[in-house]
């Protein structure tokens, strides 16, 4: 049953996402690209781009987008419910049963281990996305500009996305020949 499959895939992803929407990228790659073959690498990057420039949390946006693309409105509802359900269950249980056990030293230590792992996973995903999608000097130029603005000047993400969009459109308007082969 495809709806159940959509729900279950996103339930797993939601359950093992620690530290916000971007931390789910390695899981999306494994589950949606490698296992289910619902997406390609480039499509995932496009979805993440869309997810961060639309209102709402990145995780929900990405889940809705994938579900809707696969199976329409119902598909979108199932993936969204799937990615939310673990949060809802875990937080509700903690709230009602043991509100302070997450401050327990053992939980803290496990969390430190998980975070070290997530840093490696995100780094690995970034490297794969970079290799797959930044294949020319224009893309590399935009990437470097974005990194400088972000790391050195701490520019707001939305402003940075607008900058990227303007650069992409400007390149197309002013140098259509050079960009023609790169757009597909």
């Amino acid at each position: 049953m495809i709806y159940f499959e959509l729900f279950y895939s996103f339930f797993k992803i939601g359950l093992f996402t620690f530290g916000g929407g971007y931390a789910m990228i390695p899981l999306l790659e494994k589950e949606l690209i490698e296992n289910k073959k619902w997406l390609t690498n480039d499509e995932l990057l496009e979805i993440m781009s869309i997810a961060q420039m639309t209102p709402g949390t990145i995780a929900i946006n990405a889940a809705t987008f994938v579900g809707y693309r696969e199976k329409g409105f119902l598909g979108g509802l199932f993936t969204t419910a799937g990615v939310i359900a673990p949060s809802y269950l875990v937080i509700t249980i903690i709230y009602h049963l043991f509100s302070h056990s997450f401050e327990h030293p053992i939980a803290q230590k496990a969390f430190m281990g998980a975070r070290a792992c997530i840093v490696a996973l995100i780094g690995h995903s970034v490297w794969k996305m970079f290799k797959g999608s930044v294949t020319d000097k224009y893309g590399l130029g935009i990437f470097i500009i974005a990194c400088v603005l972000l790391f050195a000047f701490n520019i707001h993400p939305i402003l940075l996305i607008v900058t990227g969009a303007v650069l992409g459109l400007a390149l197309y308007v002013f140098f259509p020949k050079q960009l023609k082969d790169l757009l597909k």
Binding site: L45, S49, V126, V134, I142, L160, T163, G168, L179, L183
Partner: peptide, 8 residues
């Protein structure tokens, strides 16, 4: 094309 490198 412009937004993807920013996303990365």
């Amino acid at each position: 094309f412009g937004i993807k490198p920013v996303t990365i």
